[in-house]
Design a binder for these strands. Structure first.
Lengths: 336, 336
DNA sequence: AAGATGATGGTTAGCGGTAACTTTCGAGCA
DNA sequence: TGCTCGAAAGTTACCGCTAACCATCATCTT
């Protein structure tokens, strides 16, 4: 009895070809040692010959496992997320899991939509950037019964697994480095102002408050970061607060843009103005002077996520918890 | 009869709750106008109350359509791909399609694996970066019966839809711009050396050959591009070919790294050395001087991909073809 | 008033796999 | 020789959903 004419090759086609039942073919693929060698070889030959593509939708439906994990990231062009992705992917691949990616564009609504989609495909785990989600998304996640990782920032109330670093402490530490070098008028320059940027800014404020200094010189925008924007915003800040001695930019891109603007204005860094960024991307070492920054352990975060996820997928239970992987303040040459 | 205790909420649970059959619930979701208003409202209430997550794996299995499209990209951190992604996503979302992303790390083997995975999930379309694939991948794609887009570069033998630009012509045009400005010793600096980098290099060679000039000053590496690497490689080139007048870097990151290195060496750009990159990313306008580059219509490429894909998904047939969206050479200030 | 019509909802049969149990059969052992 | 046992393959049922067809009933026709 022929299968639907148009359709793709199924297990049944392979089975017919070899003269066995489809469960045997299924086993030859998933548990080869359970099928005798000669038969297995004939099955493999038939698979190659007919060009069989396993239907994961069907497999996931029947077994409840898909051997894939979804990672939802706010931005594709931000190197922060690509480092984390690499760490996760490397760990998962070794265990036979595929990493699927979704792009949220910093929108928790879009995140919700993707959570729904990927859970609907039956992914075995989910990694989210950040700890803020829609109410509906949290409900979905709780009911889903799969391990969920929230990453980058830390939260006292993790949904499940939380791996990251204390963004506020990092912002504070960097600001205190400025203070330790004698700077007093330290501004904050922020773009996008997603939750992590807000936390860093809170750290900046806390450090200044603790030192009894003004937190007035603060310029933020919801626009996405770019080199151009960093330059423009630095211009605005200098115009508005000419006595500014140092600027903490909420990420490296903005800081680099600010540095380029200083170069155009022939404003010496760090003598006339000190600068710092956040993340420790490639560019901070390329500029002259190298930029001060907070180096975040992104690769390591990805690796730890993969480890924790695999442990859970292997059946190891654990209760919600946070892991703080720390950070490192680096002075570069832009704080002097 | 109770459903499995542990499991998630299914259509049947909603149906039981409301007192109808599951097909009615299914219709309420997919074709609301086919279900009477009062009943629909009761169904919607039950869905909200019980927290139903549709199982797309099952839906895709039963219907053969998943309302999702996969995009496979070589690198997450490269802004080139994020621009394309944005263009595609915007177009697809309006039509109710989800864009799923896979990361190949410039490996066609990994690409093959992801093609297999996503086809196995029943995606309705596939967008690939580049035109080179494994033999097995091409076989899978041909059999899959879904629209396939190859993008960025052009090929005389597209699998299906091909949208991009002529990388060789672009490399040649940029090199000819150097020549038009009187430069004679024009080097090529390339990293990663994926297929597109090779095509650009071929354009550089062709332009120099046509002008009867030497193609000796060429330095390439399989390492991934970075600012640091651009600086280091420029150093090597200057050491080896001190008389070099201009360098065509195979992308903007390398060019920026090279420019930073020139600044460190107090080598005036473009007076002592001219530089150019490729792609037209944000950074080329941020540096001093702005970098010469080839601006590629990435966003537009993404939009056109979405258009073509949607036309095909709506049933409009078409035979394999290529679309050339062109490019624009921009001199910045680094060619003088 | 009888049949045609359209709106609404139900029935049946799968999509392509896998889990769990069962059958078959030859080897090993007392 | 009779029995147990394990390896190898088969049977059955079902995962959650949708296509295609069918049943029902109020509303129109003429």
């Amino acid at each position: 009895m022929p299968r639907r004419a148009s359709g793709r090759v199924t297990l049944q086609d392979i089975a017919d070809r070899v003269g066995v039942t489809k469960i045997t073919v299924s086993r030859a693929l998933r548990e080869p040692q359970r099928v005798s060698l000669p038969l297995r070889q004939r099955i493999e030959a038939a698979i190659a010959e007919l060009g069989y593509i396993p239907n994961h939708a069907a497999g996931a439906l029947a077994s409840g496992r898909s051997h894939s994990v979804a990672l939802l990231i706010p931005s594709l062009s931000n190197a922060v997320f690509s480092d984390i992705q690499r760490g996760i992917e490397e760990g998962l691949r070794a265990a036979g899991y595929q990493l699927l990616i979704g792009h949220t564009g910093y929108s928790i609504l879009e995140e919700e939509r993707l959570i729904d989609t990927y859970l609907g495909y039956g992914v075995d785990g989910l990694v989210l950037s950040g700890t803020r989600h829609t109410e509906h998304a949290e409900r979905l996640l709780r009911r889903a019964g799969v391990p969920v990782v929230e990453t980058l920032e830390l939260t006292p109330t993790p949904l499940d697994i939380n791996v990251g670093l204390d963004q506020t402490a990092a912002g504070r530490a960097l600001t205190e480095t400025f203070l330790a070098h004698g700077y007093r008028r330290v501004g904050f320059l922020g773009a996008r102002m997603d939750h992590r940027a807000q936390l860093r800014m809170a750290g900046w404020e806390a450090a200044l408050r603790a030192a009894g200094l003004s937190t007035e010189s603060c310029l933020t925008t919801p626009q996405p970061s770019s080199y151009r924007l960093g330059g423009e915003m630095l211009g605005s800040m200098l115009e508005r607060w000419p006595a500014l001695e140092a600027v903490f930019c909420c990420n490296d891109d903005l800081a680099a843009g600010a540095l380029f603007e200083c170069q155009r204005r022939r404003l010496a860094v760090p003598d006339a103005l000190a600068l710092a960024g956040f993340n420790g991307l490639d560019i901070v070492e390329a500029t002259t002077p190298p930029l001060a920054t907070v180096v975040t352990p992104r690769r390591r975060i990805g690796e730890v996520i993969a480890e924790r996820l695999l442990a859970r997928l292997a059946g190891q239970p654990c209760r919600p918890h946070s892991e703080d992987l720390g950070f490192e303040v680096r002075c570069g040459g832009s704080i002097g």
